[in-house]
Amino acid sequence: MAMTIHVDIVSAEADIFSGLAEIIFAPAQKGEIGILPRHAPLLTPLKHGEVRVRKQGGEEESFYVSGGMLEIQPHVVTVLADTARRAKDLDEAAAMEAKQRAEKLLADKQVAIDYARAQAELAEAMAQLQAINRLRKIRS
């Protein structure tokens, strides 16, 4: 029987694949690499592309990743897949957008926190909740 290596493909949002494989092909940043069992430990970013896993018995499964990280240890391969398309300028644009939303929100900018007001508001909400609880207890 062929030697096998354990493969985990995970993304931040879901567990994609976990199992044994004979060989894995992954689109590393400096070119596609094939990983056999007992590969030397390696850490590299991935480009977008296909991760192919040949499972025990020769059946092949492939997964599309839009990027991510690849970690190799002699008996375990971990693919940390990105769920979003990543690029420096894309990230930059997202950051700008987040800032603009905040600016819009604070059109009437009030920088210091009004602690007295915040506390009064919270105290009111808490009192309401407590009153509801009390009412519930009296009733039952």
Partner: peptide, 15 residues
Amino acid sequence: NGFFKRVGGRIIAQA
């Protein structure tokens, strides 16, 4: 958003 807008605070980003 609503709470910190009312009570103030330096909000620099928002989702």
